[in-house]
Amino acid sequence: MDTIIAFFENLTSLQKFFWVAGCLSLFWILEGIYPLKKHQYNKWKHAKTNLILLLSTIIINVVFGILTVGVFIWIDANNFGLLNMIDLPVWIEIILAIMILDFTSQYLVHYMLHKIPVMWRFHTVHHSDTHVDVTSGTRHHPIDFIFRETFALLGIVIAGLPVSYYLMYRILTVLFTYFSHADIQLPHFVDKTISYVFISPNTHKFHHHHTMPWTDTNFGNIFSFWDRLFGTFVYKDTKDIVYGIDILDAEKADNILYQLKAPFKKDLKSAEYKA
């Protein structure tokens, strides 16, 4: 266990980059072999918009990375956070850390992105994708991503995490983000079984349906039991899913300038008016 912790403590930016690129490439290949929906669109043109948005999140990540280092130093100096109040085996601490971060920086903030009108405006960019595939996991308006990273910092402080636990979580969340967005068709019983604990590809696709009520379901990223616990879980027939969001122009789903400016439109309906 000490070896694993030491590895994550010394994880380099290059290693993290290769992990992101590797996960993207793996699921890109798999969705070409086992697609959930037939690819009747230009995947490279579609990916361009999402990868440009990925570049913006990488820049934001650098800024928040500096803030995060300061937070870790403060936590260590003040012995602050839940994990510093109790003495547990390391493997249990790691599981608790991942659960706390998955709840605060994924489920909770994602729920708020749908329920708070000003936050929803920026989150519509993620939902405006009319062809959900692995690159859709990178599709976040910069301000949407700032909301997410702010809640990640909150989770770090609440839990009192060491940097190694946090980086374990980040590695896992990258994997599950691309796994759940990938346009792959697993055998139904496999996907269904996975969905009892984790967010499976089918599970997340309902969240990307273009109208309510499915739009406001399956908010989790790693674990599905948050949705089950709070009554936001759904699992139906994927054939009924239509991607996109009905309050933005579907024909401009791949127009990067339109997507960046859309949240500032005065006539954009708020979350409470989605129908």
Score class of each variant (00 low, 15 high):
residue 156 I to E: 10
residue 196 Y to A: 14
residue 98 I to V: 15
residue 95 I to M: 11
residue 114 H to R: 03
residue 174 V to W: 00
residue 158 I to L: 15
residue 161 L to M: 05
residue 149 E to T: 14
residue 207 H to K: 04
residue 136 S to M: 09
residue 82 L to I: 15
residue 187 P to R: 04
residue 175 L to W: 14
residue 152 A to C: 12
residue 81 G to Q: 06
residue 91 W to M: 15
residue 187 P to F: 07
residue 108 L to H: 06
residue 122 F to M: 06
residue 196 Y to K: 15
residue 89 P to K: 10
residue 144 D to V: 02
residue 173 T to F: 13
residue 99 M to R: 00
residue 127 H to R: 11
residue 132 V to F: 00
residue 167 L to F: 13
residue 99 M to L: 13
residue 141 H to L: 09
residue 176 F to E: 03
residue 146 I to W: 00
residue 131 H to G: 06
residue 186 L to R: 08
residue 188 H to W: 10
residue 151 F to D: 01
residue 205 K to Y: 14
residue 109 V to W: 03
residue 125 V to A: 08
residue 88 L to G: 04
residue 96 L to S: 05
residue 192 K to G: 10
residue 205 K to F: 15
residue 85 M to L: 15
residue 202 N to M: 07
residue 142 P to Y: 03
residue 85 M to K: 11
residue 124 T to G: 05
residue 166 Y to P: 02
residue 206 F to P: 03
residue 123 H to V: 02
residue 153 L to K: 01
residue 156 I to D: 06
residue 209 H to F: 11
residue 204 H to T: 03
residue 79 N to I: 11
residue 115 K to S: 14
residue 76 D to H: 13
residue 151 F to I: 10
residue 119 M to C: 06
residue 162 P to E: 14
residue 164 S to F: 15
residue 184 I to E: 10
residue 149 E to L: 15
residue 94 I to M: 13
residue 162 P to D: 13
residue 181 H to W: 08
residue 97 A to F: 08
residue 192 K to A: 14
residue 198 F to Y: 10
residue 128 S to I: 09
residue 83 L to Q: 03
residue 86 I to P: 07
residue 166 Y to I: 08
residue 79 N to R: 11
residue 106 Q to Y: 14
residue 90 V to W: 09
residue 120 W to L: 07
residue 177 T to A: 12
residue 85 M to V: 09
residue 170 R to T: 12
residue 104 T to V: 15
residue 88 L to N: 03
residue 185 Q to T: 07
residue 209 H to V: 12
residue 197 V to T: 11
residue 210 H to T: 08
residue 104 T to E: 07
residue 163 V to G: 03
residue 91 W to L: 15
residue 86 I to K: 02
residue 90 V to Q: 04
residue 130 T to V: 13
residue 149 E to W: 11
residue 213 P to F: 09
residue 157 V to Y: 07
residue 91 W to K: 12
residue 206 F to V: 09
residue 194 I to T: 05
residue 78 N to P: 08
residue 83 L to G: 02
residue 86 I to V: 15
residue 131 H to W: 13
residue 187 P to V: 08
residue 170 R to L: 15
residue 180 S to K: 02
residue 168 M to G: 01
residue 158 I to P: 04
residue 125 V to E: 05
residue 206 F to N: 05
residue 185 Q to M: 13
residue 108 L to A: 14
residue 199 I to H: 06
residue 106 Q to I: 14
residue 109 V to A: 04
residue 101 L to H: 01
residue 184 I to Y: 06
residue 141 H to A: 09
residue 127 H to Y: 11
residue 200 S to L: 06
residue 114 H to A: 09
residue 172 L to D: 07
residue 90 V to S: 06
residue 165 Y to C: 00
residue 207 H to L: 08
residue 190 V to S: 03
residue 129 D to F: 03
residue 135 T to Y: 02
residue 80 F to W: 13
residue 157 V to R: 00
residue 155 G to T: 07
residue 172 L to C: 13
residue 165 Y to H: 08
residue 162 P to A: 09
residue 145 F to I: 04
residue 175 L to S: 07
residue 198 F to H: 05
residue 146 I to G: 00
residue 96 L to M: 11
residue 108 L to I: 11
residue 85 M to F: 13
residue 131 H to V: 12
residue 82 L to A: 12
residue 118 V to M: 10
residue 110 H to M: 06
residue 97 A to I: 06
residue 182 A to I: 00
residue 117 P to L: 06
residue 188 H to P: 00
residue 189 F to N: 12
residue 162 P to C: 04
residue 155 G to L: 08
residue 110 H to Y: 11
residue 137 G to Y: 00
residue 159 A to P: 01
